[in-house]
Design a binder for these strands. Sequence first.
DNA 1: GAATTCTGTTTACTATAATGAACATAGATA
DNA 2: TATCTATGTTCATTATAGTAAACAGAATTC
Lengths: 190, 190
Amino acid sequence: METPPMIGKNIQRIRTSRKLTLNVLSERSGVSKAMLSQIESDKVNPTVATVWKIARGLNVELNDLLDSDDQPKRIFTLNPAGEDSPKLETHENGVSIRILSPLSMVEDLEMYLVTLEPHSILSSEPHYAGTQEYLTVVKGAVKVQAGENHAEIRKGDFLVYHCDVEHSISNESNQVAVVHMVVRFTEDKR
Amino acid sequence: METPPMIGKNIQRIRTSRKLTLNVLSERSGVSKAMLSQIESDKVNPTVATVWKIARGLNVELNDLLDSDDQPKRIFTLNPAGEDSPKLETHENGVSIRILSPLSMVEDLEMYLVTLEPHSILSSEPHYAGTQEYLTVVKGAVKVQAGENHAEIRKGDFLVYHCDVEHSISNESNQVAVVHMVVRFTEDKR
DNA sequence: GAATTCTGTTTACTATAATGAACATAGATA
DNA sequence: TATCTATGTTCATTATAGTAAACAGAATTC
């Protein structure tokens, strides 16, 4: 990277691919709409804290916004299970989320592999309207609760959600459970 | 990461470990000595460009300075619609494909769970340009070939490839392999 | 077709990042 | 001792990041 990162296009690409307006992103990030507009067109030199707030509002890693766009766009993107490339996120309650999808290829699609230790739970706050979640149970069985709906799914089962309410995935068994999760951002306005 | 990254200690740690003075780093980075002092003690909110110049002066990646010690937390919020999925299966040459995704919900996204018996192969003709496939190996190990690229992936590995060329997934082992496959159809090309 | 509600951009202003110079403290050297 | 010569910090000023509000265009709604 020979010049400071041009983060404007990164932000705009992700924002527009999720069909978010400047107003909505402004509310979610706490950064003013005017600033967002200027940052996206690279007219200003944002602070780290501001970019961090934007990353938070977009639910992406800070580095995803700072990454230069000169990546070679290979046909193959390999993300080995045990090596350095996977980003691992561990929650305190025996739930670990591994990010499978490289953000550089698709902005409105994210894939995770969630491992739930026995008697652990993954709780999530209400997400944006229009977002869908696709769960495939890879191992064990989990109990899914979303608003008033709930279901018990086990290995091989598949479940789809629309997500605008609080929901949780819990493993109440004595066996480790693994869930493949695809999150899709399709926020169409209504 | 619940708060913006505290980069001051990162910079200072690297600088002092290399026995560089503020003056020297100032010369190498182009950032004033005063600014460096204030950044290291987290008294200011530096811009991305300034931190980038410091990273350059230290010969490290930008992300090395921004990385927080605490692991980031990414939480998803969803809202269920209470739909559940159709289950179809096709059998052919020791390869069974189970369609996970309900076609009614997404037009450009399809999900499958592919089970490959030992020494079986799933070959596919080229799809439309822009189509991508996301593979997650759930069990065993498979060999993937797409055009000239090929890779051997095993349980937990994740692979993305453009499949507008002839591609195949083969199981050359003596163990059953299971692959989670997401196919995404996109009409726009870069 | 005028009014209303969106969108993103530009303006006027405030807060503060960034600078250069002065300052302070410490360790040499004589 | 005093006097250099380093270190990093604080001061006064300038440059600009960031904001709120006004603005203009496009798409809806009445």
